[in-house]
Nucleic acid binder design. Structure first.
Lengths: 205, 205
DNA sequence: TGTACATCAGTGAACGCGCGTTCACTGATGTAC
DNA sequence: TGTACATCAGTGAACGCGCGTTCACTGATGTAC
């Protein structure tokens, strides 16, 4: 990695961890540059101001999550071609991934900034919005594939069902942060899995 | 209301709204006292320091939520004595309550502080923890009543199921904050309702 | 009933500290001729 | 090959501002005798 991108991502790593621990406003540039072993001026060479840091952090986080989901469900599809079983396997893999993190998942940058959104400019808030809408679209289209094969046992709002994956992950992460536990998000995902089995698996169309 | 409690709760109202908008660190005592129309000194008459404000805010929020849930499910029980139907009616009432808020629910103080917990002392973090555990116990015991009458269609972890109510609410609130929409939390609650119908309603024990 | 004192619910000036940001400068590397 | 200049990736001192907190003081109300 070039010097430039290497330092930049060192800054972003440290900032992300700090923001998840105590929020954006409470994370000082001083502590970031101390952690990244550069000077204050060095920080402002990479980011125009603190808001630019927030935007870069979110962009990187969203991109990484997208790659993670792409990868996860690609692996699931290799194991089973049926859309329902692919979804169930993907969620299982996601739950396992969360359980396997030794310190527990550190939390979601989207949720952290959603509860501090008046600190940021419109660009950052739009980014946050687009991320959630992207996940809605991703999962909604997977659920539509499933519904084309399996008739839902009860009528459901497909947008809401698409959102449910994000919602369950976000909710689980809030719980495990508040409780100081490690596996709440994974357990909530397993409950979502059971839900989807009950909703779809009974009636092959 | 006595002067004392009246001013105190005016401070807490303003602080809570501000904390949900931009986080605890970014909420200054200056803006709180300006909103409450008192002086800086007046604030410190009521709260020893900013951490004491956080604790009081959380205590009040948790108490209010507990009363709200007590009330909601008491009304539900009046409408139907069966534990499953009581739960389903209670969740419907909760979803309606969320939909009826003209500005949308402002967000949960627990979630906001969970993503800023390194700012607070142990007392505040314990309070947060106890709140989530309290909701777990509340809903778990309701689900156990249900399971005594209706055999679950799939095996579920009862602690996780108890947590699921909080998780769905928290997750839905994160989504609606990030999206700037109003009814995501209500829709997630309706999906949870469908889940519980599928899980329990089929097999009367 | 009058007087002395105590408590309550504040006021508002002052404090020092840490914050985000700016800016003149620097040494290493790359490019033109 | 040598020299001049440009760009890159920073350094570190300095800036002013807003923050949480302290403190001496105040006027209204309550209580004792």
């Amino acid at each position: 990695m070039a010097e430039r991108t290497e330092t930049r991502s060192r800054i972003l790593n440290i900032a992300e961890a700090a923001v998840l621990e105590k929020g954006f406003e409470a994370t000082s540039i001083e502590e970031i540059v101390a952690g990244a072993e550069i000077s204050r001026g060095g920080f402002f060479y990479h980011f125009r101001d603190k808001n630019a840091l927030a935007r870069a952090m979110l962009e990187r986080y969203i991109e990484a999550e997208d790659i993670l989901y792409d990868d996860l469900f690609a692996r699931a599809r290799e194991l089973n071609d049926d859309p329902l079983h692919c979804m169930l396997i993907g969620l299982k893999l996601l739950a396992e991934m969360l359980t396997d993190m030794p310190e527990g998942h550190p939390g979601c940058v989207i949720a952290a900034t959603a509860y501090q959104d008046r600190l940021f400019d419109r660009g950052v808030r739009d980014l946050n919005r687009q991320a959630i809408l992207g996940w809605r679209t991703r999962f909604r289209s997977m659920f539509e594939e499933i519904a084309a094969v399996y008739e839902p046992a009860e009528p459901v709002n497909m947008d809401a069902l698409g959102d449910m994956v994000s919602s369950v992950v976000e909710g689980g992460l809030v719980l495990q942060r508040a409780l100081g536990e490690h596996d709440n998000a994974a357990e909530q995902i397993m409950l979502l899995r059971t839900y989807l089995k009950l909703l779809f698996a009974r009636h092959r169309a």
